[in-house]
Write a protein that binds this DNA or RNA. Structure first.
Length: 269
DNA sequence: AGTTATACCCGGACGC
DNA sequence: TGCGTCCGGGTATAAC
């Protein structure tokens, strides 16, 4: 499901397409996806302008000219697609924002949401989130401090949004593979070299995910060549039974902390 | 503090 | 084609 690189890809593309654009109309087909009445939501948004789009962890924030913010979390299976009059998608759309000749549609918002909030409310939502792993401030020293006294399994810890923001089930496996560490390893059993390798793998795997446009299989718009390129780059996730690209052994799938987990039992230690 | 269970939610995939 | 069933999985919260 959408993790940091997927949301970063969405953010970059949406910023290019829609920064400075005015919301002309709003359609809400599922009231639970928003945090107010459809009437209030529509009144606040129609005529308002999207000034900037940001990402924090797996969230996107649409800054509005009024000062309000639209906070998006796609959760499980949430997607976006940009429709035009000539190009529509036959999926159920929970929310549609009509912008200049485009419709930004939100698909698969089940637990996902699009909330209209003040800056203060957004800051409160983000208060408990861990650091951004791809920012320069995420140094080895920062990571080392975070990891101190952490006893949980790598799998659990990497996907913990309070520990680091933005890593989910797929990238945690890819990071463990890159670091040559088992997802079942406890963080406090790593030596300094392994901790350094884990730190650099977090950054390199997420950066690679961004470079290839994440793994979402639906393009954001017709002709979008970027979105989804990381799927074929994955070394272990959804590759049960395939050969490990590093040692040739067989990739296995196992439930770790009630999460679907893939790894190579031979070269990850 | 970590671990485990549970609720939330429903489109779409799948079976017949 | 059509109808019924069930799964996936991030996050918050509670209990141990």
């Amino acid at each position: 499901m959408p993790e940091l690189p997927e949301m970063e890809t969405y953010k970059n593309l949406l910023q290019l397409k829609f920064a400075g654009h005015t919301i002309k109309a709003v359609e809400v087909n599922r009231e639970k996806s928003i945090n107010s009445s459809v009437a209030d939501f529509t009144e606040e948004l129609v005529g308002n302008k999207i000034t900037q789009i940001h990402r924090r962890g797996k969230h996107l924030v649409f800054d509005l000219a009024s000062g309000k913010k639209l906070l998006l979390h796609l959760m499980l299976g949430g997607l976006m697609y940009i429709e035009t009059d000539k190009d529509t998608i036959s999926r159920s759309k929970q929310v549609i924002l009509s912008l200049t000749s485009h419709r930004l549609t939100f698909i698969g918002l089940r637990l996902g949401y699009l909330h209209l909030l003040t800056l203060k409310e957004v800051e409160e939502e983000f208060a408990e989130l861990g650091p951004e792993p791809i920012e320069p401030g995420f140094s080895f020293e920062t990571f080392q401090k975070l990891a101190e006294n952490k006893k949980g399994k790598l799998k659990t810890t990497l996907v913990d949004q309070h520990f680091i923001a933005g890593i989910g089930n797929r990238y945690s496996d890819e990071i463990c593979f890159a670091a040559e560490l088992l997802p079942t390893r406890s963080l406090n059993t790593l030596d300094n070299t392994q901790l350094q390798k884990l730190h650099s793998s977090i950054q390199s795997v997420l950066q690679e995910g961004i470079r290839y446009g994440g793994y979402i299989d639906l393009p954001l718009f017709k002709g979008d060549q970027l979105t989804g390129g990381f799927e074929e780059k994955c070394r272990v996730y959804n590759r049960e039974g395939e050969s490990c690209v590093r040692c040739g052994s067989v990739i296995v799938k196992k439930e770790v902390s009630s999460r679907k987990t893939f790894f190579c039992a031979n070269c990850q230690i």
